Simulated scan of single mutants.
Amino acid sequence: MGQSKPFRPTALIVEDDPMQREMLCVLLEECNYDVIQCESAEAAERVLAKTARSLALLMTDVQLAGRMNGVELARVAKHRNPALDVVVTSGRPLREPLPDGAKFWSKPWAALDVLREAEIAQGSASRAS
């Protein structure tokens, strides 16, 4: 008999700072996530168009390369997948409202916060599948 493949959630990381993006990716990969990383909201929007329903977690900075910011990206993501766990981060105060269900983290965030959020999103995604 065939064996089922264990569930591996997927996270989308959108951060224009390569060091922070890499740190998030490493932390999530340690939590058994498949990770897709983007530098801009426009690139992330293309990923969302294809995979929004299969994502468990989106983490994005507010300030990104390109014309769209992270709050706008969070709105697109929540529209495509209302159950998606969305975290928006910034080193500055947030100036516009987040979509319902999205969370805001001030920078610098702690690695432990990322690990906790990964567990929350993984639990929600595995219950939904």
Rank of each mutant, 00 (worst) to 15 (best):
V62L: 06
E42F: 04
L112I: 08
R46S: 13
V14K: 11
R46V: 07
I36A: 08
A77C: 07
Y33F: 15
E42R: 10
V114R: 09
M19H: 09
V114P: 12
N69M: 03
V14Q: 10
A125D: 11
L55A: 07
F7K: 04
R46N: 12
Q20M: 14
P9N: 01
F7D: 03
N81Q: 14
S40D: 05
R75W: 13
V87N: 03
P97W: 00
V14A: 08
V88I: 08
N32K: 07
A121M: 09
V114E: 04
E30D: 14
A65S: 13
A65G: 07
P108G: 04
S90T: 05
W109P: 02
C38H: 02
A52N: 06
T89C: 15
K5V: 15
E72L: 05
S124F: 04
A110G: 01
F7V: 04
E30K: 11
R92F: 14
G70F: 02
L27A: 13
E45I: 04
L73D: 09
V114L: 06
V76A: 10
K78P: 05
L12M: 05
E119A: 14
A121R: 10
A41Y: 05
E119H: 09
G70Y: 02
N32D: 15
M19V: 10
E15M: 05
V76P: 03
D34F: 06
G2K: 11
E42A: 09
A52K: 04
Q122A: 15
L58Y: 07
L24C: 03
A56E: 06
F7W: 04
D61R: 04
M19R: 13
P108C: 04
Q20I: 13
M1C: 09
G91E: 09
G123W: 01
N81Y: 00
L73P: 11
D100H: 06
V114A: 04
P6L: 03
R95L: 14
E117L: 07
F7P: 10
A110T: 03
L28G: 09
W109N: 02
L94K: 10
K78R: 15
V114G: 08
A43F: 00
E39P: 00
E72T: 09
G2F: 11
A110S: 12
P82R: 03
P6A: 12
H79C: 03
L112F: 02
V47A: 09
M23N: 11
A74W: 03
A102H: 10
M68W: 01
P93V: 00
R127G: 01
E22W: 03
D100Y: 01
V26Y: 05
L27F: 03
E45V: 02
Y33P: 07
S129A: 13
A52R: 06
P18R: 02
G66H: 07
R95P: 00
P82T: 02
S40P: 11
L84A: 06
S126T: 12
A43Y: 00
V114C: 08
G2N: 11
V86H: 08
D113C: 03
E15R: 05
A121C: 10
D61E: 15
V47K: 12
S90C: 06
M68N: 01
P6D: 07
L73R: 11
L115Y: 00
L94R: 10
V62K: 13
A110P: 00
A44L: 08
A83W: 01
M23L: 15
L58G: 08
F7R: 05
R80C: 08
